[in-house]
Design a binder for these strands. Sequence first.
RNA 1: GCCGGAGUGGUGGAACUGGCAGACGCGCUGGACUCAAAAUCCAGUGGGCGCAAGUCCGUGAGGGUUCAAAUCCCUCCUCCGGCACCA
Length: 832
Amino acid sequence: MLLKKKGNTVYRGKIMEKEKKYEPSLIEEKWRRIWEEKKINYTDVNTTKKKYYCLDMFPYPSGSGLHVGHWRGYVLSDVWARYMRLQGYHVLHPMGWDSFGLPAENDAIKKGIHPKISTRNNIDNIRRQLKEIGAMYDWTKEINTSDPEYYKWTQWIFLQMFHKGLAYRAEMPINWCPNCKTGLANEEVINGNCERCGTSVTKKRLMQWMLKITAYAERLLNDLDRLDWPEKVKIMQKNWIGKSEGASIIFKIVNESCLDLEVFTTRADTLFGATYVVIAPEHPLIFKITTPEKIQEVKKYVEEATTKSELERTHLLHEKTGVFTGAYAINPVNGKKVPIWVADYVLAHYGSGAIMSVPAHDQRDFEFAKKFGLPVIEVIHSDNAIRNDDGSLAAAYEGPGILINSGQFNGIESEKAKYLITKWLEENKMGTFKTTYRLRDWVFSRQRYWGEPIPIVYCDKCGIVPVREKDLPVVLPDVESYKPTGTGKSPLAAIPEFVNTKCPQCSGHATRETDTMPQWAGSSWYFLRYPNPDLKTAAFDRKIVDRWLPVDCYIGGVEHAILHLLYARFFTKFLYDIGAIGFDEPFLKLFNQGMVTKFSEKTGKLEKMSKSKGNVVNPDPLVKKYGTDTVRLYELFIGPPELDSEWNDSGIEGCYRFLKKAWNFVIQQVEKNSETDIDSKKRLHLLIKRVTERINEFKLNTAISAFMEFMKDLPDNCCFSRQDIEKFIILISPFAPHFAEELWQEFLGHSDTVFNAKWPDVQQQIISEETITLPVQVDGKVRATVSVEKTANSEEILKKAIESVSKFIQGKDIVKKIYIPGKIISIVTQKK
RNA sequence: GCCGGAGUGGUGGAACUGGCAGACGCGCUGGACUCAAAAUCCAGUGGGCGCAAGUCCGUGAGGGUUCAAAUCCCUCCUCCGGCACCA
């Protein structure tokens, strides 16, 4: 019974005799408290029910808190997790903190607070904000990568890699960020700049711990096929791994016949056109082969090249430079003597750090040859080559063609010649088929304080010795000064109590490794820890992780497409190989939510929401005004979840109005206490069908539209039974959990949570129509619609259709009649 | 340069496998309620022409396939993201 009273819609329910309208502020906090008290989100990992692991990419606890952009992914995963729960799954939906690493540390330095304290404060703040979202996280499984009880096991995994030879030390020029004062992984350098602070990255030669991720290149590549991931991410990983099949060819060095110069090429077919050889400035043979009269010049060039920044070398200076070493090599296929040059367009870390140069068929070599007057010999003929008036090549021809100037291989098609020439080299022991990868080993050392200490000691007698497993964790010491030194050593090196230790093997004097691990270490296996976060005896319980993993659905931003996802796959495969787990891919399904953008006054463009762009929208005032459920709805309604969406505050009103209407609808219908009429039954089941389908397809924006349409189209006199109203509440509960719970328990009087209810089934026979309405087109234009019995045959239907458009076909001949069952009728006419 | 994604009213966005373009929301206009406002409710809302019934045009541009194209094909433009001297 509806009463008008002071402008408010009120109801008299069975349970209470007081007036009530939709007031989120009165219900949301209450339910969050009750859910926590009753532990309804606690996941018993020992359950025998079918499981579902729905994981968010865990955040790093920055000081600036969450904005509406962060909400989007969390709301999305929560709707999905709640939906799967209502589908009868036992859902694990955990949350934790990626709290080691540069962002946390830089933030701490900026504020002058110890990272340990600031991290704890930030975590407390973000946890509070996350709880406001109302997500069903099982907080008893919270983990924190900077907790010694956690990083003990990160160190343990490192030791396992060390034992298998996958963690090794190497002195090499690495990417160095002068601002963050630390080495960086290849993956952390974006366009020659530091991923974190944007500073131009330089090179620094340092002794580094490396992880041999390249040993897994082939598997990391192949197994992508098994994953239900966005194609975009798979392609990005594929490109990053960069598999390239070709040949390794040996060039003997003139007068140094014991020295072999190995080059890698994908164009063995052009071997006869190799007119010189180029080695990278970092090539190990460089000073062995350079002739005495050239040594000064080469030395100078190498020095210049190796101190250039990554940006200069790879992005800015495409003008070719190089010097002749004075040495010559022998082209194995024809015995020709060719000069050896040093040039920095050849990269030391790819292939063998040396190339054969074929200026006629490689544009880079062409430019170099032109600049230094080196010969160009065409060996692939094609009419598609671009030529000067005199017939010489105007640019390298890189396409396919027929071999010329190539001895016994003349006349062969280039693709075929690749194989034949490589085979010939192999038979003559001057080369092999070879596959190379762009992927490089992972630089695992950071010269910073806030990370996992690498559990290694250096003993004067025994050398490099791993810390015994029983002595883990190597605890990060509390220090006053944790600022980076910039010397290439971590701040830990300045703490004698930390550095000086005893050798685990001989008990003699030893010093600890003082570098720490990169931020990506802890996040490479955290998903394995959630099901058993408090386990003291191991990183994880194999029985439990094998039951709960792989993660069924992983939700997060696309910015981690390469870094985190590749590293996590690598760790998982390694743990599989050593028998620690029974699966070798961590994440079966990946969903990347789009960014939330907003116009930035600073840049004058639409930008991803971020503090630095000055375009963040704080959810707190919105929650205060409309309630969490409305904000949740709007986060989803704003656009397709996988695409970027522009935030606009004004749209949120629509979601609030909808919830108010839905609230009143439920109350009115329960008050009516009648049976569901046929029309309403049909509407409800159509809604169930649409919402279910759209959630399954992750089209949550249109799932919400379906609810709005349902509400909007209801006739005034519609009637729904209590049972059907319950279905409606269950249907909306993943989207607006507080709203649904209040109606379910408080208004309808259930004693258990709505999230233990069962997702409603569609009754197909209710929504199937006996008559259908079809549009009728004449010459491609819709001119009428006809209602026909579903069972009618096509002749009847066409007859009816033609009658309906008689006006439009008068004086014309019908040349074609098309009836697509259930879809459309199309009449084609011609003038008489 | 290469590889992805996108381009639809005033606006955010719908549209299954080629089958009534613009669902739903915002905004706007008009109306109801009110002393008045807010809130709420009802109606309208792509553009042109027309009093109207209507009718023509319309999914970044231009071509094509088809009875039928936002959707498929070709050429091109713009924006966003990734990679980029990887031999």
